[in-house]
Computed example of a mutant assay.
Amino acid sequence: MSLQLIEPTVRLHAEWLESHAEWGPGLHEDGFGISESDELESPSGFAAWIARLHALPNATLRWILEDNRIQGGIALRHHLHEQNGHIGYGIRPSARGHGLATWALGEILNHASTLGLPRVMLVCLADNLASTKTIEHHGGVLTDVLHNGDRSIHRYWIDLADRGHSDD
C-alpha cells in the first residue's frame, strides 16, 4: 500500500471523477473544497476548480492517494472557522475502515504543527463514530456539543504542543 497526500492536480481528473461518482451527487465530500458553483466534469471546469483551490489563502488542501486512486481529501484551514473547525476530511465509501483518515489526519496535524498552530479544532456529527475514533486517536478532546436542528455536532480540540515528540 502506497499512501500519499498530494496537492490537487488536473493530472488526476479521471481518477477524481471516479472517486466523486462513488460519493454520489451533492457536496458531501468533506476535505475537497467543492462549492455549488464548481463545474467538475469538463476539463476546463475541473481546471478552474483546481486553480481556485490553489489560490485559497490560509488553507492547505490535499488529496489522499493510495496506489494512484484518490481515496479522499483533507483540508486544513490555517485560521479557526467556528462552524467547521480547522480540519475537515472525507474518505470515499469503498475505502473507509482501513485507517486512511487516521493516517491522513496524523500527516495534516504534523503540517499544522510546522505552521505554528498550538492547537486545532475538528468537528463531526455526533453519530459519526468512525470520525470520532479517528479524532480521539490523535488526542482529540471533546469540548462541546452544538445542536443544529435535528443534528448534534461534536467539537474537539487537539493540542499540537507535543506533536514533534509523538509516535503517530
Rank of each mutant, 00 (worst) to 15 (best):
H20Q: 07
S2W: 13
D144Y: 12
A21I: 06
R62A: 01
A130W: 11
G99R: 00
S44A: 15
I87P: 03
D30R: 07
L109K: 06
E136R: 15
L76C: 14
P93K: 03
R52F: 07
R163K: 12
I34C: 07
G90R: 00
L117I: 09
L65G: 01
L160Q: 12
D127P: 03
L3I: 14
R119D: 12
I50N: 00
E107Q: 09
A95K: 01
P93W: 02
S19M: 13
S37K: 11
W63S: 04
L115C: 08
G90L: 00
Q83H: 14
V141R: 13
G31L: 00
L80P: 05
H165L: 11
H138Q: 08
A75N: 09
H20M: 07
L125D: 03
I64V: 15
N148T: 14
G85R: 07
L27K: 00
N128I: 00
A51R: 05
D159K: 13
G85H: 11
L17A: 09
S113I: 08
Y89W: 09
L27C: 03
F46W: 08
T114H: 11
I70H: 06
E107M: 02
E15P: 04
I135Y: 00
L146S: 11
C124D: 01
A126T: 10
P8N: 01
H78Q: 10
P57A: 06
V10H: 01
E136A: 10
L3P: 05
D150F: 06
D150N: 07
G99M: 04
L125H: 05
N68Y: 10
R77F: 02
G24E: 05
S44P: 08
T9Q: 10
I64S: 04
T114F: 10
D168F: 15
E136T: 15
G88T: 09
L76A: 11
G45H: 11
I91P: 00
L56Y: 11
S37A: 14
L40N: 02
E18P: 03
H81L: 11
I135F: 00
H138R: 05
H137P: 03
M1C: 01
G73Q: 04
I153K: 00
T9H: 04
T60S: 14
L27N: 08
Q71D: 09
V141S: 10
G139R: 00
D159Y: 10
Q4Y: 09
L61N: 07
E66G: 09
P8Q: 05
R11D: 13
N68R: 13
I108L: 04
S42Y: 05
S131I: 10
R52S: 10
F32L: 03
G72H: 03
H137D: 06
W49F: 12
I74D: 00
G73V: 04
E7T: 10
G90S: 03
E39I: 15
R52P: 08
E107P: 02
P93V: 01
D38P: 08
W63Y: 05
E7H: 09
T60W: 11
D167S: 14
G99V: 02
F46D: 06
S42G: 07
A126G: 08
L122R: 01
F46T: 12
E15V: 08
H165N: 15
S152Q: 13
A47W: 06
H81A: 14
V120L: 05
D167V: 08
N58V: 11
N128F: 04
S166W: 12
G106Y: 06
P93E: 01
F46S: 09
Y89I: 05
